[in-house]
Design a protein around this nucleic acid. Structure first.
Lengths: 213, 213
DNA sequence: GTCTATACCTGGATAGAC
DNA sequence: GTCTATCCAGGTATAGAC
């Protein structure tokens, strides 16, 4: 944060001692802007001046704008996918709804921890080959979540006649939307928020006389 | 749809008899693309060729790209706001949670009916004065929804200690995310979906042995 | 590793004919 | 109302010096 404050201040030449930039640092600064303004609405000039370097210097670290996008989103998707593996392959002794709750909790935590990248990930529209490949991975994620709920229907934990695909989309949608409005300076800390999300997904609005689990 | 198929086919000059274009028709075509590709990623050239006209012709109907944005979003926000008035000023004899359920149901219906415009509305980042004024109206909407839940806490319908603001954001977030993934060609029709959303917000995942209202 | 300068192109917007 | 032609700003990317 201190390095960002300095960078934002401006011309980095006035800052004799500072950590040398690397690909990650450039990507982090870029995603901060991508998430606030949108990918297309952000120019490399803005990224450069946020870092206190010139636009051309960015090309030393990344092949181009899309390369930055891929760099950051690859990392975010990898984190989410490895979490999904944990959730899916958790002891099958655990009821499916427990595994789903785990997925929602961890998904919220990861989303909040990687807020900027995840926010960009969620706004992809498939306008390039890179975006389409990321979207494909995202859909695989959704499908895996739906599979857990489908299992919950067969075990009878979820009401017969429920639509697992739709319910999974709604549940994951809560996480997605969460990432868009949460600001770290909020009254409620991120850790608690993940729990609120889990309760909301499992039980909806906390009405009186309906305490469950 | 037939007019769109013709337009998409291409050069409108090969289409002797067709309804003359007006500002609404241009905006509708534009929002179809805005919602699929994003506002910034869509050029007026693309809008023009989708309509089968030249880019310059667009300027006869609208002052510019941002004017198209305002045209469509003004209409969408107006529909949402008038619905909110209904929900808020509904007979106070109705419990707050009933009014909130109404808001969620109608919000889902309106969102699905105006899918393209609402989707664009939800992706605004405040990059221009127009966008910021729309975002302000959106926040007022969220605040009004939160006020209903706050009332529900005071009446005891919602558990004491609940955070109405967060719960309102999560609830409205479900509607928002809904608009992003729903496709009319889905297995589930839009009408039913709104009911699923209401149940999800009020009760969460439909677990067995937890039927409530 | 970072700079300045610049090539090149896309996209929004305007002029003026029909 | 719609066209063709054109202007111009801004954005990605590259060249070459330091």
């Amino acid at each position: 944060m201190s390095s960002k404050a300095r960078g934002a201040a401006s011309s980095r030449s006035q800052d004799p001692i500072r950590k040398p930039l690397d690909a990650d640092a450039v990507a982090t600064a870029a995603f901060e802007l991508f998430s606030r303004q949108g990918y297309n609405a952000t120019s490399l000039d803005q990224v450069a001046s946020a870092l206190g370097i010139s636009k051309a210097a960015i090309y030393y670290h990344h092949a181009g704008k899309e390369a930055i996008l891929r760099h950051g989103l690859d990392a975010a998707m990898a984190a989410l996918e490895s979490m999904l593996q944990e959730a899916v392959f958790q002891s099958t002794a655990n009821p499916p709804l427990d595994r789903f709750a785990y997925l929602v909790r961890r998904g919220s935590q990861i989303g909040l921890a990687h807020k900027a990248t995840v926010e960009v990930l969620l706004r992809l529209k498939g306008n390039s080959e890179i975006e389409r490949s990321l979207l494909k991975r995202r859909r695989a994620f959704d499908a895996a979540a739906a599979a857990i709920l489908r299992e919950a229907v067969t075990t009878g934990d979820l009401q017969a006649g429920s639509n697992p695909t739709v319910l999974a989309s709604l549940s994951i949608g809560v996480i997605n939307t969460l990432v868009e409005w949460y600001r770290p300076d909020r009254a409620i800390p991120a850790g608690e928020l993940a729990e609120v999300v889990v309760r909301f997904v499992m039980s909806g609005l906390p009405r009186t006389g309906t305490e469950r689990i």
